[in-house]
C-alpha cells in the first residue's frame, strides 16, 4: 500500500468574477522511502498540489479542493483542524524556495526549531539538545553556538539548512521540498541536494520534490510527474521519462535547458500551440 495516494485532485480558486482551475484531475502515489519529482513551470499547478497535501490552501469559498488525498488510513480532505494539526509538520513537512522569507527575522533559529519540536513532540524533554542535534544533522558547524544566531546572520545556504533542520526535527515521513534550491548558488545547490539525499536515506523518509529544473531531478528522484496546465501529462521512472519522453511538452521542457559544452545557435523554446495540436491529435 502506498504511503500517500492522490486521486483525481481538483483545485479551483474562486475570484469575484472568475474561477481559475489550477489543478484539473491529478492522480499519483508515493511509496515509503521513495522520491517523486513533480516538474512543471510557473502556473502549472505543482505548488498548489503540494500545498493541498496538508490543506495549506485558503478555505472555501475562495478555494475548493475535491478528489481524494489518502495518507495511510487517513483521508486528508475529511480531517478536522485537530487532525490536520497532527498531520502538518509531524507527518508531512515542507521546505520552500526562499528561506529568508520563511524564517522569522526576530527569533533565533534555535527558538524557531524549538517551537516546532514543542508543538509536534510535547514528549521531548531535552528540546535544546534536540535542536542542536537537528542543526548538526544538516551540517551546520558549531551548532551549540549557531543555534543562537538570527536568520540575517546566516547565508542563504545556511538558512536553507536551518529550514531543513526545522522540517526534519519532528522526523516526518514525507518531506515536501518546493523549489528548495532555486534561490541558491550552484555550488550551494549541489550541497543541499547532497544533504537531502543523505538525510532521506538515514531517516527512511519519502520526498516530494517540486521543481522546474529537470537538471536536479536526474540522480535524485525515483519517479517524475510532469505537470502542464493543471494536469500530469506524463509520469514514470525518472530515467525513462528523461531518455524517452513521450509527451510533446516533456520533450519541449527538456529541450530548452542550456547544456554545458553543447554549443547551440539558439535555445529551443516551447511552442504551446504546437503542443496543443499534438495533444488534440493524440487524444
Amino acid at each position: 500500500m502506498p504511503l500517500l495516494s492522490v486521486e483525481d485532485l481538483r483545485i479551483a480558486f474562486h475570484g469575484r468574477d472568475r474561477v481559475v482551475e489550477a489543478v484539473k484531475g491529478v492522480s499519483f502515489t508515493l511509496e515509503a522511502g521513495r522520491t517523486l519529482a513533480i516538474v512543471g513551470e510557473s502556473g502549472s499547478g505543482k505548488s498548489v498540489t503540494a500545498l493541498s497535501l496538508t490543506r495549506l490552501l485558503p478555505d472555501p469559498p475562495t478555494c475548493r479542493v475535491s478528489g481524494a488525498i489518502r495518507y495511510g488510513d487517513r483521508e486528508v480532505l475529511g480531517l478536522d483542524r485537530r487532525g490536520l494539526q497532527a498531520l502538518r509538520g509531524k507527518e508531512i513537512a515542507y521546505i520552500f524556495q526562499e528561506p529568508s522569507s520563511s524564517l522569522n527575522p526576530v527569533f533565533t533559529v534555535g527558538d524557531q526549531i524549538a517551537e516546532a519540536i514543542r508543538l509536534h513532540l510535547p514528549e521531548v524533554k531535552d528540546v535544546r539538545g534536540r535542536v542542536v542535534e537537528a542543526l548538526r544533522q544538516v551540517g551546520i558547524a558549531d551548532p551549540e553556538r549557531r543555534h543562537a544566531a538570527y536568520p540575517h546572520e546566516l547565508s542563504g545556504g545556511m538558512q536553507q539548512r536551518v529550514m531543513i533542520a526545522m522540517a526534519l526535527a519532528c522526523r516526518p515521513r514525507i518531506l515536501v521540498a518546493d523549489e528548495p534550491t532555486t534561490a541558491l548558488d550552484v555550488t550551494i545547490q549541489k550541497q543541499i541536494i547532497d544533504l537531502l539525499r543523505d538525510l532521506r536515506a538515514s531517516a527512511g523518509m519519502s520526498v516530494i520534490l517540486i521543481t522546474h529544473n529537470f537538471g536536479i531531478v536526474q540522480g535524485f528522484a525515483d519517479e517524475v510527474a510532469v505537470m502542464y496546465r493543471g494536469q500530469i501529462v506524463e509520469n514514470g521512472p525518472t530515467e525513462e521519462v528523461l531518455r524517452h519522453p513521450r509527451h510533446p511538452y516533456t520533450r519541449a521542457l527538456i529541450g530548452c535547458i542550456p547544456r554545458l559544452g553543447v554549443r547551440q545557435d539558439r535555445l529551443a523554446t516551447i511552442d504551446h500551440a504546437a503542443i496543443a495540436r499534438e495533444m488534440a491529435a493524440g487524444a
Partner: peptide, 12 residues
C-alpha cells in the same frame, strides 16, 4: 572546475 562540476547536468 568546481563551478562546472556543480552545474546540474542532464544526461539524455
Amino acid at each position: 572546475r568546481r563551478l562546472l562540476e556543480a552545474v546540474p547536468k542532464l544526461a539524455v
